[in-house]
């Protein structure tokens, strides 16, 4: 296995609010390897974004606070890096694509100048002309028609899909070794989503950047991701390659996610939602945070008392699950919870 580009280790982040301390992210560990797309999936508030935003120091502090952990990027810890060094990393080595292209572009600057700015910010020897050429080239790469004219247009003259293309162009401007796409298609309508997925794929192919794809869209994960990290209540609950996650999930939450998806290969009358609500992050349930909603726990005491560690369970070193009874799920998934599913 090659060296990971990014290793997040034991990351714990809290936010103090009026109602109490929110544990947004607890003991999160994951690696991102060169050239791969790691899909991070989970409900709203599961800590998907916070884990990556923390690493780029983009969470507001206060109320945010990093309690522990490190984020080793190319051998350096991003969390202890000086502000100046981190600024070089942001947009240079690690670039972000944001959720809402409507608000992520500065309305009073032309799209082109914002891309050119990204180029200029990280290249000492670039001048205005070469930055412009590069920006136009990038716009063409992400499929913006007439990039020469589009360069001088303002965000309000772009449609949503075109803006997201602009954002992607900006993100890959400096050929980052890592891309973070934070729900890149959530704010777009479905037809545009498919196009943006294509653009993302192109961008990733061009830059060979390791990519963290944050989303709650299982379809997007299936489409793009190589490996999947499932998060629940601020913890990683399952981590494996995309085929394994979809075919043989070993955490009840992942199983629940899969079952709540409409399937075309099975005749279903109703979708099976996961019962209950996501837990309060101020006072999460003791033990496994998922146990109140878990169909598999069946009231076992250990689920309520012990926090299950993320561990392997004899199905190979690449499949990690944070369930006390991950082994049982091998059968449960086939026989029990998803009864209609073929074995």
């Amino acid at each position: 296995m090659p060296e990971p580009v990014l290793s997040i280790r034991d990351l714990t982040v809290e936010f103090s609010t009026e109602d109490g301390v929110v544990s947004a992210v607890t003991d999160v560990n994951y690696d991102v390897f060169p050239g791969e797309i790691l899909g991070v999936i989970g409900e709203s508030g599961a800590g998907k974004s916070v884990s990556v935003m923390t690493m780029l120091d983009l969470i507001p502090k206060p109320p945010g606070k990093v309690l522990s952990g490190e984020a080793i990027f190319k051998g350096r810890d991003l969390l202890t890096m000086s502000k100046r060094d981190l600024r070089d990393v942001r947009g240079g080595d690690i670039a972000m694509i944001f959720q809402d292209p409507m608000t992520s572009l500065n309305p009073v600057l032309t799209v082109g100048s914002q891309i050119a700015e990204a180029v200029l910010a990280h290249n000492r020897d670039a001048d205005d002309d070469s930055a412009r050429d590069r920006a136009i080239e990038l716009l063409r790469l992400v499929g913006v028609p007439n990039p020469e004219q589009r360069f001088d247009q303002y965000p309000h003259e772009f449609s949503g899909g075109m803006r997201q293309r602009g954002m992607i162009a900006m993100a890959i401007a400096n050929e980052p070794s890592m891309l973070i796409a934070d729900e890149p298609t959530t704010a777009l309508d479905v037809t545009i989503q498919a196009q943006i997925v294509e653009v993302l794929r192109t961008a990733q192919r061009e830059t060979h950047a390791a990519t963290i794809l944050i989303t709650h869209d299982l379809g997007l994960i299936a489409e793009l991701a190589d490996r999947v990290c499932v998060m629940y209540a601020g913890r990683v609950v399952e981590l494996s390659d995309v085929y394994t996650i979809f075919n043989s999930p070993r955490h009840p939450y992942t199983v629940g996610l899969m079952n709540s998806l409409p399937r075309v290969d099975v005749d279903q009358e109703m979708l099976q939602p996961i019962p209950g609500q996501p837990p309060s992050m101020i006072a999460p349930p003791p033990g496994c945070a998922f146990h109140p909603r878990c169909l598999h726990s069946r009231g076992r005491v250990v689920c309520r008392t012990d926090v299950p560690p993320l561990r392997t369970f004899g199905e190979g070193a690449d499949h990690l699950s944070a369930c006390h009874f991950a082994e049982e799920l091998a059968e449960a998934h086939v026989v029990g919870i998803g009864a209609e599913q073929p074995a």
Partner: peptide
């Protein structure tokens, strides 16, 4: 605004 966050993420001081 998000574009400020985006600018920060792009390495702007």
């Amino acid at each position: 605004k998000e574009f400020v966050e985006a600018a920060k993420a792009a390495g702007a001081g």
